[in-house]
Amino acid sequence: MLDDRARMEAAKKEKVEQILAEFQLQEEDLKKVMRRMQKEMDRGLRLETHEEASVKMLPTYVRSTPEGSEVGDFLSLDLGGTNFRVMLVKVGEGEEGQWSVKTKHQMYSIPEDAMTGTAEMLFDYISECISDFLDKHQMKHKKLPLGFTFSFPVRHEDIDKGILLNWTKGFKASGAEGNNVVGLLRDAIKRRGDFEMDVVAMVNDTVATMISCYYEDHQCEVGMIVGTGCNACYMEEMQNVELVEGDEGRMCVNTEWGAFGDSGELDEFLLEYDRLVDESSANPGQQLYEKLIGGKYMGELVRLVLLRLVDENLLFHGEASEQLRTRGAFETRFVSQVESDTGDRKQIYNILSTLGLRPSTTDCDIVRRACESVSTRAAHMCSAGLAGVINRMRESRSEDVMRITVGVDGSVYKLHPSFKERFHASVRRLTPSCEITFIESEEGSGRGAALVSAVACKKACMLGQ
């Protein structure tokens, strides 16, 4: 009897593995994704193909990295998701002549009506938060230079001027797309009239992360975010950046690689679950690469896999709870928690219980395998993109072996128990001629924006502006 049951459990697990095998990517698959990513990057950089390229390769006008001589107080704003952060950054000489960066910050959550109302409502709310922060720190009387981390696709015309191309991540505030974001912020500050600010720089969160990590390690020339969304930036040779005049030196390019796949480059790798996630998203047909990796989508992918296993009578005796059938019910943090389970399955059992399920031991094991399959594919897909960037940098610099540091931020990278190990191992397999160091950014977005502002202020002083 026991043997029969054991055989049935083994057969069930084997069927589960057959279904989950769809998520496995072979090294040849990853090399294919990497080569296609490089081709799209090239198209994004070139003037004649930029418009139709899915990977936009947006110039950021960040050319210099901090040298350690900029000092002063800077205000930093960070808008990239449902939370908005205001930070005071003091850049100065530390002990023994070292450079020191001290920060104080406060988080504000953005109400739904500000995210989806008008641009005026959104930026009025942001300036209200700045006003509140300055009151708390008794700094209303000071006109501070301000660095703005704005983590949406922007076409820069200068370091302090950028046109919002399109909202992502659930934002829909009308009247912002096609307009200068810094102008919208300046107008809102003017409307309030109770404080003055000098907006000197606007950067993407990947750029802010790279600059913040450069402060720790001067070989950091790539910034990457794996959180709600997924994106990367890197220092490109100016001669390859056709959208900006000049051939000397390097400029940081914001790849906006989340949109890779929007022209069909990933079609052969998309599964039924991916198509369902895409169809029910706020932007169907867009940001397809990001939807395979980002935390906004990972939990939902797992939920759809679990429903398939229920329908195949391989999980929960073929019956799903009402909660499990509800879109968004299986949160991405559950994926991390399930994979963090120590082996007694308590954590998995508790999560499934909150979803109205009474799982068996085998159910718990199957749910864990589903989570591992989805998150491992995410790590491997992400590795193909980064390997594409790094191999490109090595080739354009004609280096036999390139040493490089990548600064990384984002909740999936930082909080998932195995993502970074799987990701690092896969990147290294795909970049055999590179020695890569990964560092995690601390308060990256805010500190990085302030350091970019410090560079901009120093330049302005040198130019006598």
Results as ranks from 00 to 15, higher is better:
F23P: 04
C220A: 15
M298S: 11
R5W: 13
N391V: 09
C233T: 03
L266K: 10
M107F: 08
V62N: 03
E9M: 14
V452S: 09
R85Y: 06
W99Y: 14
H105K: 02
D198N: 09
E245F: 10
L306A: 13
L451T: 04
D400Y: 11
L47P: 06
D311V: 09
A387W: 01
R46M: 09
S336H: 06
Y297D: 14
L184D: 08
R429P: 11
D132R: 07
E331Y: 07
Y125A: 03
R191K: 07
G178A: 08
L314C: 14
S353D: 10
P145N: 13
F133L: 05
D344P: 12
M393V: 13
L47W: 11
R186W: 04
H416K: 06
D341F: 10
P417N: 14
L75F: 07
G356I: 03
E242M: 04
E265Y: 03
L270I: 12
Q138D: 11
R422A: 13
S445P: 03
M202H: 01
F195L: 07
G44A: 07
A329K: 14
E196V: 04
D262A: 13
T65S: 13
D42S: 13
H50D: 05
I159W: 01
D194S: 11
A10N: 12
A114M: 14
V91A: 10
H380D: 12
S54Q: 13
L185G: 00
D267S: 10
G178I: 04
E290F: 06
R303K: 04
I163L: 02
I211L: 04
F195Y: 03
A119R: 00
D278K: 01
F423N: 01
F148W: 00
A119E: 05
L304T: 11
A232M: 11
E339C: 05
R333S: 10
Q98F: 05
I439Q: 06
L304C: 09
I436W: 04
E95I: 08
W167T: 07
R36D: 08
V452H: 05
E268I: 10
V226W: 04
D135A: 05
A378S: 09
Q239Y: 03
F316L: 13
A208F: 04
E51P: 10
I159A: 02
A425E: 12
D247S: 10
I19V: 14
E339K: 04
I211N: 15
D217Q: 15
G410S: 03
Y273V: 13
M202R: 02
A10D: 08
N83W: 06
R368V: 12
I189M: 01
T118D: 05
E14Q: 11
R7W: 07
R447Q: 03
H424I: 07
K104S: 11
L75R: 04
Q106I: 10
I390C: 13
K31H: 12
G223V: 00
E248P: 08
R303H: 03
V253Q: 05
I130V: 05
E442M: 15
E96D: 11
M37A: 00
G446F: 00
A384T: 04
R250N: 08
E395Y: 13
D160P: 10
C129E: 00
